Amino acid sequence: MNDDSTEKRMAGDYEIIQAVHIGDREVVLGENPQDDTGMKYMCAFCRQNALFAEYSEVMASDDFPEIVELFGQRVAEQAQKTHIELNKPRIQGIDDRPITAEGCIPISHEDDLHGKIIVIKPEVLRREYRRATRQLKLCMGGFGASPHSRGSACYCVDLYTGKESRYERMDVLGTIQPENLPGWAKHGLTAIQQEQAKKKTTKERER
């Protein structure tokens, strides 16, 4: 009996048959068996969120080995780009080992996470980001930040990159007190707080 319950991932008329997500982009390989224009296979970069997927630098061909070779090249290039990004001079000398449960305070349904420093579970992150510099976030809000909330979304700011992100409450390993943060994280927290204060002052002046 064939199991047709698994929904195929499609990019237009192409079924995605291989995909590797590393760093800030995903490399995909697609196939359209019905194509008769000489573009049966394609390779592209993909960025997606909960609403839509955006494909760029799409290359198509009827030559499968050629497209597979391109797929491999792009994966290798993206891996190298990510390796350089994760090992910039400013991170050298930082203890970037993943934070475990022993290194933070566990949370319960009673805890309010608003304004708290939260630690994301390593297994939630993609393999290349399972490190301390990608686990520590300042929780800004979301229904999941409130105790006993029916919602689960927690909106955060990354202490290392300063980028905004969203996680589920179940993704949170625990919290860390600001005074127990490593130096780089204290610096990141200060920068975020200063930026927040600046935005608040600007809004007050505009009233």
Results as ranks from 00 to 15, higher is better:
12 G>N: 14
14 Y>V: 08
16 I>T: 11
17 I>Y: 06
17 I>T: 15
18 Q>I: 01
18 Q>P: 01
19 A>V: 07
19 A>L: 05
22 I>L: 13
24 D>E: 14
27 V>C: 05
29 L>W: 03
29 L>M: 11
30 G>T: 11
31 E>H: 10
32 N>G: 07
33 P>S: 10
33 P>M: 07
37 T>L: 12
38 G>L: 11
38 G>V: 11
44 A>E: 08
45 F>V: 04
46 C>I: 03
46 C>L: 09
47 R>Q: 13
50 A>I: 03
52 F>H: 09
53 A>G: 12
53 A>T: 10
56 S>P: 01
56 S>Y: 01
57 E>Q: 14
60 A>F: 00
61 S>L: 10
62 D>V: 06
62 D>N: 15
62 D>C: 09
63 D>E: 10
64 F>H: 10
64 F>V: 10
65 P>K: 04
65 P>R: 05
67 I>K: 06
68 V>P: 00
70 L>H: 06
73 Q>L: 13
73 Q>E: 13
73 Q>C: 07
74 R>N: 03
74 R>H: 02
77 E>P: 00
79 A>C: 03
80 Q>A: 15
83 H>L: 13
83 H>G: 01
84 I>H: 08
89 P>Q: 03
94 I>M: 09
98 P>W: 00
98 P>M: 04
99 I>C: 05
101 A>C: 06
102 E>H: 11
102 E>N: 11
104 C>P: 11
109 H>D: 15
111 D>T: 09
111 D>S: 08
112 D>N: 15
114 H>N: 14
114 H>Q: 09
116 K>C: 10
119 V>S: 07
120 I>A: 09
121 K>C: 05
121 K>Q: 14
121 K>H: 13
121 K>T: 13
122 P>Y: 03
123 E>F: 01
124 V>Y: 05
125 L>P: 04
126 R>V: 06
130 R>F: 02
131 R>W: 01
